[in-house]
Design a protein around this nucleic acid. Sequence first.
DNA 1: GGGATTGTTGACCGATCGGTCAAGTCTGCG
DNA 2: CGCAGACTTGACCGATCGGTCAACAATCCC
Lengths: 196, 196
Amino acid sequence: MRSKLTQRGKDRREQLIACAARLFAERGYHPTSVSDIVEDLGVGKGVFYWYFSSKEELLTELLKSSNHDLRVRQQLAIGEEPDPVRRIELGIRASLTWFQEHRDYFAIIAFAAADETFAPVLQRNREIAIADTIRHLKDGIVEGRITDQDPEGLAHAIHGVVSELTRHYIIERGEPVDRVADLAVAFCLDGLTNGR
Amino acid sequence: MRSKLTQRGKDRREQLIACAARLFAERGYHPTSVSDIVEDLGVGKGVFYWYFSSKEELLTELLKSSNHDLRVRQQLAIGEEPDPVRRIELGIRASLTWFQEHRDYFAIIAFAAADETFAPVLQRNREIAIADTIRHLKDGIVEGRITDQDPEGLAHAIHGVVSELTRHYIIERGEPVDRVADLAVAFCLDGLTNGR
DNA sequence: GGGATTGTTGACCGATCGGTCAAGTCTGCG
DNA sequence: CGCAGACTTGACCGATCGGTCAACAATCCC
């Protein structure tokens, strides 16, 4: 896929990514062959290797761009909100909404996270997300709104809650985002303990 | 591998599982071929198919037995503890300890959870674990110790925290169990909020 | 028109993998 | 000893997969 791409070329590239994403989500990465992808699109195999140097490259790009998309979505949702606790809440809601709209990606990300080849990409994605969360947490700690504990640990705990609730309620059960978001936010803020 | 197995046979079976577990953890399931496994053990390929009907069967058995082992560990740790909140805490600590001692299994489980073929086994394992947690939560709710919200949601949130903290601190960083357990327990009990 | 560049085809290749099997070895036991 | 059945061997098979390539079509621009 050397050098310049015309508009037609860019479209093809996006078609391939979209098509591969659907098939990867349905059957998994390894069981989906390059031949499956091009067949599904009704083109020859050479097309794939004109736009991507390998199957690996396609998934890597898919992972990077989807993560970027999610992050942009979070930042838009958070906007200029001054309250750090509310910023975290808005970030959680944006995540859940994004995954509801991109269910396909959940399975792909789960696979990639468990695969030696793609784990580094996912690791980097996660580091970025954790760093974002840590900033809000630190602001909250300074303001005395959030418990004064290691913000990195808190950030990972929050991400754990969000990812498991996404998996179970959004992806597996298809429940409405709001109900799940309320649950996630309530747990992250107050935990299990009753009353105060 | 039909019918009876002598002691020698049982040993071989366990050798194969242990050996496969190590290789699966190192390189992943798909990239580890049956030939790799038997070569590593220094035996012929037929040995594998004498004891297992397929590569799939071996991993399925590995997943089931490891989950059973973890659950026994949790029950031993919990013992006769009457306080439901404390029971949850003991369960969390037992989980973290088990994964520290069986790091190899974390990557394998992560892979299996993302693979269509093995997801059902993992799903079942998870359902059992969630059901255990829910029982403690319900006891705590009745006693007024735990917030009166959907116990299933709370259980998933707890599991999310534990699994992400295990991944990041125990598996990735190799930190001591106690420090991580304290963090997990504190977060699950009180969340982010400061003071009360 | 015509040449350069982009885009497309699909047969083909080498490698690998899960699984089979006919043949042979070891072990316990009557 | 001798036999039955547990266990082991490793060459082999069919299938699949990622990736290549020579040939060809479409498009752009001078």
